[in-house]
Design a protein around this nucleic acid. Structure first.
Lengths: 233, 233
DNA sequence: ATCAGCAAGGTGGTCGGACCACTACCACCC
DNA sequence: GGGTGGTAGTGGTCCGACCACCTTGCTGAT
């Protein structure tokens, strides 16, 4: 049955690898229900405690989903499921690493915006305009931030690459933006932000990918430069 | 002390959030040692089992590091630590999602290669050439793949953005490349790959960022197109 | 005084069992 | 037929014990 236990690493770590392998090999399909914790532990010859730690780890990674009273299921393994952990990176990064993260976001956001200029539908464009208008209609920083996030989220969604959208979502997580925003607003940056968003919107309406790419890159680049200056000071 | 337990979500989930918050707020510095599992569990008013699941989850995320017999420590929270989980995404993605992942890689890899063209040092360039030569000197697919990975790794490192390099590392994880490689080689793609790598190298030597960007984008784009065709067939 | 070697305490790792909270399902009653 | 209750089964939590490993500091010979 089992060939001379490999004995490498902790028992829990082995269980994580085993389950991951089962999914990678297709023995577990997305959405499928796993055996119970007790059965799984017995199958792999370990205690339920260790198996639970493995399951918890894979749950946090977005690979598994535990439903109390029902069972354990494989997620759909879509971009949103697996890349949710990306937000943790943004939340815990500091100093120079934030600039690097912002640089990655600039590259991806500009590409996504360019793609969106070519592919965005009328409905999506209307939604973009809704958030743009809402953003200009209020002075509440909290609300502005929310519509700012939604503005970019709709655009990223219109680009047609869910994986890229999911990464950008993580790179723009609430705490990340809030941290940078705190000081950014105190420099009359709101007016500039509104101008930049308007420029992005114009490029989308004109269906001009290159203009959209430039506008998005400049938009993120502004924040990037500001943050870089902050760190140097 | 504790203000009317929030009682939202599972106990373990709460513990994960609490520890993450401690780090985000700076109460736990990178490299610092945490209290023992037993103490932590007592402090947060939960069992050791639940606390262990929380710690295991954060360990898998690359936030904490447990050293048997010594204690639990916060990692350096560098790009490499936190983005290791990115490899899981690549390993478990399939079908259309692989194409999306490759599209993200094309965007980042071309940018990184362009940056490298401007910033690469003589030593790094020599290392690039070493892997290029080694790649051309053998016909063993396994060895070619290894040098291929190293080739791009050195370039990504020379770009000066560790975060971007770490993401690209995950996007090029062993199993991911191996899976795509399997069928890719059977079409005389090796010769083409060598030509493309040579083109990237020439652009680096010429310190021509735009040429480097184009060469890298074309290189990844080739694989991307091939994979897209495979899925359609 | 120096240092190799050993011993004890502390730490994470594993195990087994017990009980709770919740869900799904089905037989039952109106 | 449609609620209604119960019941078995699931994940969630807790406890206590023991093991494997590291760290520390003492011991003792050199």
């Amino acid at each position: 049955m089992d060939e001379t236990a490999p004995q490498k690493g902790t028992v829990t770590q082995r269980a994580i690898e085993r389950i991951k392998a089962m999914i990678a090999e297709g023995r577990l399909e997305p959405g499928q229900r796993l055996p119970t914790e007790r059965d799984l532990a017995a199958q792999l010859g370990m205690s339920r405690s260790s198996m639970r730690e493995a399951i918890r780890a894979l749950t946090v990674l977005g690979v598994l989903e535990a439903r109390h009273g029902s069972g354990i299921y494989v997620t759909q393994l879509e971009a949103g499921d697996l890349l949710e952990t990306f937000g943790v990176v943004a939340d815990l990064s500091r100093g120079p690493q934030l600039v690097e993260l912002l640089e990655v976001r600039r590259v991806l956001e500009s590409t996504a915006t360019a793609l969106a200029a070519a592919r965005i539908t009328a409905d999506q464009l209307a939604e973009v305009e809704k958030h743009l208008a809402a953003m200009n209609a209020t002075d509440d920083p909290e609300e502005i931030l929310a519509h700012d996030l939604a503005f970019h989220r709709v655009i990223a969604g219109a680009a047609g690459n869910d994986t890229m959208a999911a990464i950008l979502e993580g790179l723009s997580s609430r705490t990340f933006r809030a941290r940078v925003w705190r000081g950014y607003e105190e420099e009359g940056a709101f007016a500039r932000t509104r101008r930049e968003h308007a420029a992005i919107h114009r490029a989308l309406v004109a269906r001009d990918p290159e203009a959209a790419r430039a506008a998005a890159a400049a938009h993120v680049g502004e924040v990037e430069e500001w943050l870089r200056a902050q760190l140097g000071a």
